[in-house]
Amino acid sequence: MLNLVIGLVIFFGLHSVHIFAPEWRARSMAKNGAVRWRMRFGLISLLAIASIVMGFMQARLAPVWLWNPPMWTHQIASLLVLVSFYFAAAALIPGTKLKSMVGHPFLLAIKLWAFAHLISNGTLADLVLFGGFLVWSIVSFAVARRRDRAAGVEKPEYIGVHMDLAAFVVCIVCWFAMVFFLHKMLIGVSPLI
């Protein structure tokens, strides 16, 4: 569990710099160069993710159950994850309607993904991991929206329905791959159970 907590603290700290210390980030990027900054950021992120995965897998060996979620929460979680995949695809594909309306759909995707996993899993490790991501994404979204409004940042332009359709196709393909193949292979648990 300690590795999980350490990894989460590093990951969230690192991914909160642009929100809570944007001036320091800009100075560091200017001083060291954007490429070097991104390389360090990526390396530390990978180490944090490795610590999170290792800690979560260790905690699953001796789970501490806080509640026993009913089976129907798995179906709700699958639907919420489908919607979160659409939000993530809409964030990555330029010119979608969702991105033009919300501004930060990837943070909404993380919120839905974390909430879906919280309602369908009941161990302490699940609460720490998914609860941590849920709290972080809620705070990050609120701060990012407030900062954008204060700075007068305009939301991205909507290009057209073809971009929404592209996001939908990416969403469906990724969701099917995750539900029917990758989740069992990577996590060891099928979401279809």
Score class of each variant (00 low, 15 high):
Ala109Arg: 03
Met57Cys: 03
Met54His: 11
Ser100Gln: 06
Gly42Cys: 08
Tyr86Phe: 15
Leu61Thr: 12
Ser16Glu: 02
Ile52Thr: 14
Ala167Gln: 12
Ala142Met: 09
Leu82Gln: 06
Ile10Tyr: 04
Leu182His: 00
Ala59Glu: 12
Ser51Glu: 11
Leu92Trp: 14
Leu129Ala: 08
Ser51Val: 15
Ile172Gln: 09
Leu127Cys: 11
Ile159Glu: 11
Pro105Gln: 03
Leu129Gln: 01
Met185Gln: 11
Pro22His: 02
Thr73Arg: 09
Ile49Trp: 05
Ser100Phe: 01
Glu23Thr: 12
Trp175Gly: 01
Leu80Val: 09
Ser84Lys: 01
Ile10Ala: 02
Phe181Asn: 09
Leu66Ala: 11
Leu107Tyr: 11
Val189Asn: 11
Ala177Thr: 05
Ile52Met: 04
Thr96Cys: 05
Asn3Pro: 08
Ala125Asp: 03
Cys174Ser: 15
Met185Thr: 15
Val35Leu: 15
Trp136His: 02
Val5Ile: 15
Met71Gln: 12
Met101Thr: 11
Ala166Phe: 13
Met1Gly: 03
Ile193Met: 15
Asn3Thr: 14
His117Cys: 10
Pro191Asp: 00
Trp72Ser: 12
Leu182Phe: 12
Phe85Asn: 01
Asp126Trp: 04
Met54Gln: 08
Pro70Lys: 07
His15Arg: 01
Arg25Ala: 11
Ala90Gln: 01
Val81His: 00
Gly55Asp: 09
Tyr158Asp: 01
Thr123Ser: 06
Gly103Ser: 05
Val81Ile: 13
Leu4Trp: 01
Arg38Gly: 04
Ala167Pro: 13
Ile159Trp: 06
Val173Thr: 05
Ile44Gly: 03
His15Met: 07
Gly103Val: 00
Phe41Cys: 08
Gly152Glu: 05
Ala177Glu: 13
Lys155Pro: 09
Asp126Gln: 10
Ala167Arg: 09
Pro69Ser: 03
Val169Pro: 01
Pro94Thr: 13
Asn3His: 13
Asn3Ile: 11
Arg40Ile: 08
Pro191Asn: 03
Val161Lys: 08
Gly152Met: 09
Lys111Cys: 14
Val139Arg: 08
Asn121Tyr: 03
Ile93Phe: 14
Asp164Ala: 02
Ile193Asp: 15
Ser190Phe: 04
Leu4Gln: 02
Ile44Glu: 00
Ala144Gly: 06
Arg36Asp: 02
Leu66Asn: 14
Pro69Lys: 00
His162Trp: 14
Trp24Arg: 12
Met185Cys: 00
Phe106Cys: 13
Val139Trp: 02
Met71Ala: 13
Val179His: 05
Lys155Leu: 12
Met163Phe: 15
Ala114Gly: 07
Met29Gly: 15
Leu80Met: 10
Pro69Gly: 09
Phe180Val: 12
Val102Gly: 06
Ser45Gly: 07
Gly103Gln: 04
Tyr86His: 02
Ile52Cys: 03
Ala34Gln: 14
Pro156Ile: 06
Arg146Met: 14
His104Ile: 05
Leu107Cys: 02
Pro69Asn: 07
Trp136Met: 07
Arg27Val: 08
Arg145Met: 07
Asn68His: 09
Leu46Gln: 07
Leu43Trp: 06
Glu23Arg: 10
Glu23Pro: 00
Pro105Asn: 00
Arg146Tyr: 07
Gln58Asp: 02
Ala90Arg: 02
His15Tyr: 01
Ser140Met: 12
Gly188Lys: 09
Phe115Glu: 09
Phe176Leu: 15
Ile6Ser: 13
Val170His: 15
Val153Ser: 01
Met101Pro: 05
Ser78Asp: 14
His104Arg: 04
Val5Cys: 05
Ala62Met: 10
Ala114Val: 10
Phe181Glu: 03
